[in-house]
Deep mutational scan, measured.
Amino acid sequence: LQLFIKTLTGKTFTVEMEPSDTIENLKAKIQDKEGIPPDQQRLIFAGKQLEDGRTLSDYNIQKESTLHLVL
């Protein structure tokens, strides 16, 4: 599923993930694309901070959802 990642600077980029992927996987993918170390990434969806060990489906993140990346 394609997700939109929006940064505080207003930049938006996309990543391609599976619902079974963990937040950790997502942070690694963001590191590949943007060079931001996972330990500096905080991801927010629907007002909640996402925890590394959980999956996208745990948070009911669907295709074309927008996640906010806070550094």
Rank of each mutant, 00 (worst) to 15 (best):
I44A: 05
K48M: 13
Y59F: 04
N25Q: 12
I30Q: 00
Q41M: 14
K48Q: 13
I30M: 02
E18H: 13
A46V: 06
L50Q: 00
I36C: 03
Q62Y: 09
E34H: 09
D52R: 04
G47L: 03
L56H: 01
L3I: 14
D52K: 05
I23M: 03
L71P: 15
K48F: 08
E51S: 09
S57H: 11
L71T: 09
R54C: 04
T66N: 05
E64H: 15
H68N: 09
T9G: 12
D58C: 02
I23H: 01
L26S: 00
T66I: 12
A28V: 11
G47Y: 05
K6E: 11
T7D: 08
K29R: 09
K29N: 05
D39H: 15
E24M: 11
E16V: 13
L1V: 12
E34W: 10
I5K: 00
L71D: 08
Q62C: 04
P37K: 10
T14L: 15
T9F: 08
I30C: 02
T55F: 08
G53A: 10
L3P: 01
E24L: 15
T22N: 05
N25M: 15
I36D: 02
G53K: 11
Q62D: 11
Q62N: 14
N25H: 13
E18I: 12
K29L: 14
Q31G: 08
F4G: 03
K33R: 11
V15M: 07
G53L: 08
Q2A: 09
K11F: 13
L26Y: 00
S57R: 14
K48Y: 10
D52L: 06
P19K: 08
A28I: 12
L71G: 07
L3R: 00
K48L: 14
L1R: 04
K6R: 11
F45D: 01
D52G: 08
K63V: 08
F13H: 03
P37E: 07
E24R: 10
S65E: 08
A28M: 15
K11G: 08
L69P: 00
E16Q: 10
L3C: 03
N60E: 08
I23S: 01
K63N: 15
G53T: 11
I61C: 01
K29W: 07
I44F: 15
F13N: 01
F4M: 11
E34L: 15
F4E: 07
N25V: 12
E34Q: 10
I30S: 00
Q40K: 12
G10L: 05
